[in-house]
């Protein structure tokens, strides 16, 4: 495997990690707010807090890892995306800032506030929507690159079916992933009321998720036919994704093996995510920038890869420790610690 492909795969993998943990996080924030205003069971919200409190900061680091890594491995992305994304990027920053800090204010402050809960619940849903703009732009057709200047064609972006279908998919996936995880978590906590509620949410959001995915296939075939034909060459990955999805929904519907069901959801997104990513290659920004010409010099690439391996050796045991204390510790999950 070339360094370019290794680099982008590692980064893509971390972005996948962010996709999953952040979806659980953002969805949970939204459900927390929604349950609060609809006066559903107080128990549910306690459960959400118990999961979220120790881990939210870790979630954020996945994101930081991605954008620091992409500048490290592909410095030219700074030039293309940096210039074009000033406004959407700044809006994402504001949303992240509001989400993270109001989450902390609400959780660690002295009392649970409805305004704070609203702020972090809603901003959490908007963040995935605003991030997907980067993926949309990478398909090409939304940037004007001429005489050393890169500008975003905002009009094109806002009127494109493709960009809106990505936004819709982002929002519904967040709710689906999160609900599937919380179903399992509630079940483990032995919290029947929460379990019933989240199971209903999961089944409820399953259909829109698959519908939105179909919409993406359709709109990408019109927006970027070259990419679409690459996707067809890898169609087995997307078919696999569909099978995982059906398996997950079946298990949750028949109330069996909920842990496995969530793993299937993760695999569903894993195969779709890597199918999408692989078919996008070699472009980082269609048609201006490829992984080959945007790649960092070899010395730095090797240094980054070594640092990465050393970092993983440090992090993996620590993450396992964290999960054993909070995620897989039956007493903690049940609220006994």
């Amino acid at each position: 495997m070339s360094y370019e492909i290794l680099g982008i795969s590692v980064l893509w993998f971390f972005l996948y990690g962010y996709l999953i943990v952040a979806s659980v996080d953002f969805g949970a924030g939204f459900f927390h707010f929604y349950n609060k205003i609809s006066h559903q069971d107080y128990q549910v919200n306690k459960l959400i807090q118990r999961y979220l409190s120790p881990v939210w900061e870790v979630t954020n680091v996945f994101l930081v890892f991605f954008f620091v890594g992409i500048i490290g491995f592909f410095p030219d992305t700074a030039y293309y995306y940096g210039t074009a994304l000033l406004i959407p990027g700044s809006i994402s920053i504001v949303l992240i800032a509001i989400r993270g800090s109001y989450y902390a204010f609400n959780t660690y402050g002295s009392k649970d506030s409805k305004i704070y809960s609203f702020l972090y619940g809603m901003s959490g849903l908007l963040i995935p929507a605003s991030f997907t703009i980067v993926l949309t732009i990478s398909e090409g057709g939304y940037l004007d690159v001429s005489d050393g200047n890169v500008t975003l064609l905002l009009g094109e972006l806002l009127t494109s079916t493709y960009s809106w279908s990505v936004v819709v998919l982002a929002i519904v996936s967040v709710l689906f992933i999160s609900a599937a995880f919380l179903t399992y978590y509630a079940y483990k906590a032995g919290d029947d009321a929460s379990y019933t509620l989240f199971r209903r949410y999961t089944l409820w959001w399953a259909f829109p998720t698959i519908l939105a995915s179909m919409l993406i296939f359709f709109s990408i075939s019109r927006h970027n036919p070259e990419h679409f034909s690459n996707m067809l060459d890898m169609s087995w990955m997307f078919i696999l994704s569909l099978l995982f999805f059906l398996g997950a929904v079946y298990l949750i519907y028949s109330k069996k093996k909920l842990g496995l069901a969530f793993v299937l959801v993760m695999l569903q997104f894993f195969s779709a995510w890597f199918g999408y990513g692989a078919s996008h290659l070699p472009y980082l920004l269609y048609p201006h920038l490829t992984v080959n010409d945007g790649f960092v010099n070899e010395t730095m690439a090797i240094a980054l890869i070594l640092a990465f391996i050393a970092g993983l050796l440090l992090l993996i045991p620590s993450l396992v420790f964290l999960m054993r204390l909070f995620l897989f510790d039956a007493d903690y999950v049940r609220g006994k610690r």
Partner: peptide, 25 residues
């Protein structure tokens, strides 16, 4: 900077990661 000084920026993220995990614990 990406060509020349991205190594410590990258390592900083690992330091944060490490800190964030243990702070939670």
């Amino acid at each position: 900077a990406g060509q020349t000084i991205s190594l410590p920026l990258f390592m900083e993220v690992f330091a944060f990661f490490f800190e964030a995990i243990f702070l939670g614990i």
